[in-house]
Design a protein around this nucleic acid. Structure first.
Lengths: 204, 204
DNA sequence: TTTTACATACCGACTGGTTGGTATGTTTGA
DNA sequence: TCAAACATACCAACCAGTCGGTATGTAAAA
């Protein structure tokens, strides 16, 4: 092996993520990326066969980080309580904590960004996005099944759409906070979601 | 006046809206719009001084239609019950009905699309987006104040973030349904929101 | 141990095509 | 007949992507 180019590759993805969340995939040119980074076209196209391939690699990296974060917060929540309902409430609380401690406004979710430009991407990328949504659902669905077995819900609900509701609120809150330029919206909406879960599975 | 160009103008906006919700503003070229419509550049730039101005006009039209829809459903809900809480639950139900009766998947919200490309737009457009969010909040906030005066919430909530939560869930559900390619998600999530409001203001 | 061969990382000029936008001419209806 | 509603022809800037070349490292043969 020659010089280690992995840091250059990472820096390209970092810059791309930042710019794409501000201007969308189609709004970011290869030139704008390399100019911001101070590298050349040669470097860019050495690491990615084309712009689309870079976008795909970026989304996969984002998805992987997402998964790691979810597993991390989940395992922390599971250590903080033995009760599945309490665990989930703590899980939401850890998300609140995370968004609350951010010094800069959360820049947004790449999946959402791509979703509002879906037809710009190839079938494989579109399928990866859909599969990711189903994966998030699957993870939380199992959790809700356990909760529902122990705590009968006050209103008839299904575990799948209940699982979806977490990401629904997150994605919605990202947009609202960006649109209104009010970062605090994310934590506020997570609190409402916690309220809902509490009320839905209240034992009293 | 010579020929009536208003229908051409409308058709340009219709096509733009459709394409932008598929590919994002930057992903839609003026050529792609006029080709799809079968008109020429002359027609396009006769009606709009540039692409940005078209995007701004489109967003304002979308915002106006939005407002009309909300007022329409609200007045229908107000006629169907005298109780403010019931009115709001009916209001959500009318949204459910609307999304349920759509023959094609809901294409998405222009405000959300623009929001994930915010830096592509000028300050005036960005402010219009932020003001729209605040306007939605304001409308529902008054409603919730009335509800809260009559029905003490089971958990401590503020009317502003509670108002935001409706649009949060809508915007989130739009993304989830597009990403997963499952239109039914929108109605499912609205049902969860209705659940939350019911449980939060339950009298028993 | 040195030299040759080779691979990776990167540079920057260049290309064909697309972009948003303009200048000017033509048609159409009141 | 006159202004609004288009069409046509064109331009300069920008776009993604290519290509010949260079710099820098590793590996293996002599």
């Amino acid at each position: 092996m020659a010089r280690d180019g992995s840091s250059t590759r990472d820096k390209i993805l970092d810059t791309a993520e930042e710019l794409i969340l501000e201007r969308g995939y189609s709004g970011v040119s290869v030139d704008s990326m390399i100019n911001k980074l101070g590298i050349t076209k040669g470097a860019f196209f050495h690491h990615f066969k084309n712009k689309q391939a870079m976008a795909e690699a970026l989304l996969h990296r984002f998805g992987d980080q997402d998964l790691v974060l979810m597993e991390n917060l989940r395992s922390r929540a599971e250590k903080l309580s033995r009760d599945p309902l309490q665990q989930f409430l703590i899980y939401i609380g850890l998300f609140e904590e995370m968004f609350d401690s951010m010094t800069e406004p959360f820049p947004g979710c790449l999946f959402a960004s791509y979703t509002y430009e879906l037809q710009q991407f190839d079938e494989a990328t579109r399928r990866y996005i859909a599969d990711s949504v189903l994966r998030w659902r699957g993870e939380l669905q199992d959790w809700f099944e356990i909760i529902m077995a122990q705590y009968p819900p006050r209103l008839p609900v299904d575990s799948a759409s209940l699982a979806d509701s977490f990401n629904t609120i997150l994605e919605g809150a990202f947009i609202m906070s960006k649109a209104a330029n009010q970062p605090e919206i994310i934590v506020q909406q997570l609190r409402h979601y916690k309220n809902y879960i509490e009320l839905l599975f209240a034992t009293d």
